[in-house]
Amino acid sequence: MKSILTITKRELRSFFDSLMAYIMIVAFLGFSGFFTWIQGRDIFFVNQASLQSFFSIAYWTLFFFIPALTMRQIAEERKTGTIEMLLTKPVSEWQIISGKFLATLALIIIALLLTIPYYITVAQLGPIDHGAVLLGYLGLILMSAAYICIGLFTSSLTNNQIIAFLLALFIGIFFHIIFDILSNGLPGILGNISHYLSMSTHFESISRGVFDSKDIIYFLSIIMLGLVGSEAVLTKRN
């Protein structure tokens, strides 16, 4: 556990040292703030004290930002050879992967914490369903964790960051929207499978305030699959 935290600490520091963290946070707050408060189907348009519109915008912004954060995490270590330095220290592949995962997740949580003023503001405007907001945030965190794991996995496959980024988006877009579209078009069992695989199905049910273990299991499965997959790729280096 200590080794995991050592890796997490270093990764977080490198996010902040490389300005990546600041750029990500500012861009995230900028985008989500703009579309939540100013443009389009914003909070005032709904005529209801709810953070729904923020959640659906964050759902998209995080989808694009996360691969940009994860793309260098393993790919760069492979390229510069520092992965060899790490793996010849008494740490396992699993510890390295989970340390990196936790660091990125921590950064996303920091970014989400900075949107708490939205919540406070909206709560001032009218009666708000506190449970739904809490679950909405939980949904965002779970979804981010899933995309981080997909991103880590693609980053472990290559030592080219751009390929890692595009591959993560490519895999991600299936979960993000394509399965959803397919589920409407495909008949019978295929439609049901697509419906189950679609991230939006599960995210929407959580962010509407429905806490169902089925959704939690869905997210945790993607997370575990991504982590185990990256570990397997790292272990298979020879």
Partner: peptide
């Protein structure tokens, strides 16, 4: 290691 990999940052 031969290439002496380090975290340059």
């Amino acid at each position: 290691p031969e290439s002496n990999p380090l975290y340059y940052e």
